[in-house]
Design a protein around this nucleic acid. Structure first.
Lengths: 191, 191
DNA sequence: GTCTATACACCGATAGAC
DNA sequence: GTCTATCGGTGTATAGAC
């Protein structure tokens, strides 16, 4: 039974302000704090507007994640098409990857069907792009990289940057210097 | 101003049942669902008993995490003292590491001071144990491992197993076969 | 497009009887 | 150690006026 409640446009200034506010709340206080009242307050809007622009809180969370992945994929494709794709991707992920937010969405994916599917789609797609870029380099150089395959490097690129950023945010730096050197050594085999 | 409310023992059958129930709730529905009523229901107990055994919900969550890390460190020390420490740790982390629960606690750490400190303590301590075990092997063999240092391997051991398990649970397997082969190759340099 | 008003459920936490 | 009862607050979501 569909609701008869009215709905607002999906790309207005107000809806984007709500998405921005949602990101801030997730970053600062986690998904447990991402309530309609809290998000609206963060955006300086009334609580009920959340339901005008997004049918449910689940929809808001999903839209928030989708906006982020779309932007990330655009950037990733730019990096992959650049002169030194592997270095560019490594730099982008090392600097920009917002570990706190990513983790919040990954935890959310554990019990939010829509987010889970979107996370799977995003990871699969971005790893596909990364693997292709690395394989292209390998083809050009024709060097033997042994077990350091494009797919393995793509996995390490994304997961190691994520974990480095997250641990640093938690006050951990055990082994970070060494692993950074190791990854850069592995990357050097391609680019 | 301290509360005058009475408190129960911290290692009774009932308090452990509550901790078990908390783990199940976190695993199935995330920390947002870990409410006193929900946890009590899961344990077949009354909601108010949560506050008899644990002062606040934050305390319950923290106790739940502490119990897990204590058990994990015991197991890690056993593995580190075994004949093939690196292989043993890799196997234990690959099989037993409960990715969903770990992620839930890591996300929780983002905005829960007590859990954040405990996560930092646990990661630092376990990585220290792993690094020592790997370095001991390196000393015995006296082989040159280049950039594949004990600290780097320790970082990869814990983070790669965590991410492999988590992605598998989300329905992702992009690059998993390759990265497993790569890690096992790196481990072979030591053990 | 934004407002007021409101429904109804669930939250953490406490008091005090048994 | 476990129970009943309960407080004040907050949650999602909707109806309907402006």
């Amino acid at each position: 039974m569909a609701s008869h409640r009215r709905m607002g446009p999906s790309d207005s200034a107000t809806s984007n302000a709500l998405l921005d506010a949602t990101e801030r709340v997730l970053r600062n206080d986690g998904y447990g704090a991402a309530t309609s009242r809290r998000v609206a307050q963060e955006a300086g809007l009334k609580q009920q507007l959340v339901y005008y622009y997004f049918r449910t809180m689940d929809d808001l969370l999903l839209a928030c994640f989708r906006r982020r992945t779309e932007r990330a994929l655009v950037r990733l494709e730019q990096d992959a098409a650049s002169e030194h794709p592997v270095q560019a991707i490594w730099q982008t992920l090392s600097n920009a990857s917002d570990g706190k937010l990513s983790f919040e969405f990954m935890a959310l994916a554990n019990h939010h069907e829509g987010v889970r599917e979107e996370v799977a789609r995003f990871v699969t797609e971005s790893r596909r792009i990364e693997t292709a870029a690395i394989a292209r380099l390998q083809g050009e150089r024709a060097t033997d990289t042994g077990p350091v395959t494009p797919a393995a490097v793509a996995f390490l690129l994304s997961t190691v940057t994520l974990m480095l950023g997250r641990e640093a945010a938690t006050g951990i730096d055990e082994g970070h210097k060494d692993v950074r050197a190791l990854i850069e050594w592995a990357l050097g085999k391609f680019d």
